[in-house]
Amino acid sequence: MRNVYFVRHGETVWNVENKICGATESALTERGREQARVIGREIKARMDAGELQIDRMLCSPLSRARDTAQEIADILKLPLAIEPRLREQNFGIWEGTARDGEGFQRAKENFIDSFGTGESMLRLAQRIYNLLDDVRADADHTYLLVAHNGISRMVESYFRDMDNGEFASFGIRNAALRTYCYPEEA
């Protein structure tokens, strides 16, 4: 079985302020940069121990993910490519508002809503699922994807069934590594 790895970007200014970043830029904090270096060293140690193999890295074009990915790539000595499909979901009218706001939590359960000026969950699913299909088709490489919490939710849903509530509440912490395994071809 083949794996793909996922890391969420390090802590940002808006994470600290409990704001929804979405497609809006929010810089890494110094703690976020250190989180990126820590996860980079952890991945390198696991690679050196033969526990995992990564030979390609793709990241979101947004600076918080790109800067996290660059810190990791420098440690791993791996090539890094910007992948536009890893850009965080545009949460439209909710960007810059409280991440734990009741209205936003309910809105995330409506997969067709574009949040006024943003991107619907269904359109996000299309681009992330297409990307994961492309990664799977590249049998010669094993990828580390560096992106965002909204993207992590969609990646998780690609590999396991979730109901709407599970999907809406799923998330991973900053600079966390997750491993996903593509099922064997039938």
Rank of each mutant, 00 (worst) to 15 (best):
R87S: 13
E71Q: 15
T68F: 02
L80D: 08
R66I: 02
L62F: 04
L58F: 07
E71S: 14
W94H: 12
E83L: 00
A81I: 10
I75G: 02
F91I: 08
R85T: 10
R64V: 00
L76K: 06
R87I: 13
F91E: 07
A69P: 01
F91Q: 10
L76I: 06
E88N: 08
E71T: 12
W94P: 03
L62R: 07
S60Q: 01
L76M: 09
E88R: 07
A81N: 13
I72E: 03
S63L: 14
R85G: 04
L78H: 08
L78E: 07
S63P: 04
I93C: 11
L78T: 07
L76Y: 04
P79V: 13
S63Q: 15
L80T: 09
C59D: 07
R66L: 10
A69F: 04
E71P: 05
P79D: 15
P84L: 11
Q89S: 11
I72L: 07
D74I: 09
P79R: 15
A73Q: 09
D74Y: 12
L78R: 07
L62W: 04
I82T: 15
S63A: 14
N90R: 11
A73Y: 08
S63R: 15
A81Y: 15
R64Y: 00
D74K: 14
K77T: 14
Q89Y: 11
G92C: 05
R87M: 14
S63D: 11
L86A: 02
I82H: 09
P61Y: 00
L62C: 05
R87H: 12
I75K: 02
A73S: 12
L58I: 08
P79K: 15
C59H: 03
L58M: 10
P61H: 04
E88K: 02
F91G: 06
A69S: 05
P79L: 10
E88Q: 02
N90E: 13
A81D: 12
N90D: 15
L86Y: 06
L58Y: 05
I75T: 09
A73C: 09
W94R: 09
I75F: 08
N90C: 15
L78N: 07
L62T: 03
N90M: 12
G92T: 05
P61F: 01
N90L: 12
P79H: 14
A65W: 00
I82L: 12
R85H: 09
A69K: 05
R87A: 13
S60C: 04
D67M: 14
S63G: 14
Q70A: 12
G92D: 02
P84E: 10
